[in-house]
Write a protein that binds this DNA or RNA. Sequence first.
DNA 1: TGCCAGGCCCTCTTTAGGGCCTT
Length: 219
Amino acid sequence: MQTIAVIDFETTGLSPNGGGRATEIAAVLVRGGLIVDAYQSLMQTGAWVPPFIEELTGISNEMLADAPSAESVLQDLALFTQGCPLVAHNAAFDRGFWQAEMARAGCMPDPAHESFACTVLLARRLYLDAPNCRLGTLAQFHGLPDSGQAHRALADAMTTAHLLLRMQHDIAERFAGELGSLPVEHGLLNQLQRAHKSALKRSVQDYVKRQGVQALATH
DNA sequence: TGCCAGGCCCTCTTTAGGGCCTT
């Protein structure tokens, strides 16, 4: 059964190329429709946290002074998520920091981590009635469990994980005719997030068809 | 005070521009 890692970074800015560094990371493991494990840590990169970010996240320079080094945190994280495809809310943002911080820490690239699905792109496909696709809005829209203080890594990763579970449920229900008993795994999420709204059903059918071919190929 | 990035999507589009989403 596939395990998916839902991740969330808190950072000092919007882009690693603009000098932004990670301040906190969380990863939540999802398997078989359940949250099965979680990891969270502050990390010390030596970067200064601007007042605006401190107010937004509650993460201060003083808190980071006692935090473990980014290198040790990222090595732990690489082990924790080993072999798991990744999911994040606005994956383009987290993917940029993931790649930059993993490279700085000298972690070997994990082929599974090249597959990075985005709950924003999926939400834009699936929830046309939602006011917008911000994480907090979608959590309220679906009545997701309260995961704690927003803009902290574990709380946001937990909320994203609950959103992902909701999406897997909704996709399975909406496309029950095409999917049958096929689980809603990472490959289908990737397929759907790239599909045009009007082509959702065709994407599911294409995915199911390919799964069938792969199943035959393994026998 | 306001902007600083980057990837993706949508449309009054595709030889482009603007909005969304993340910290």
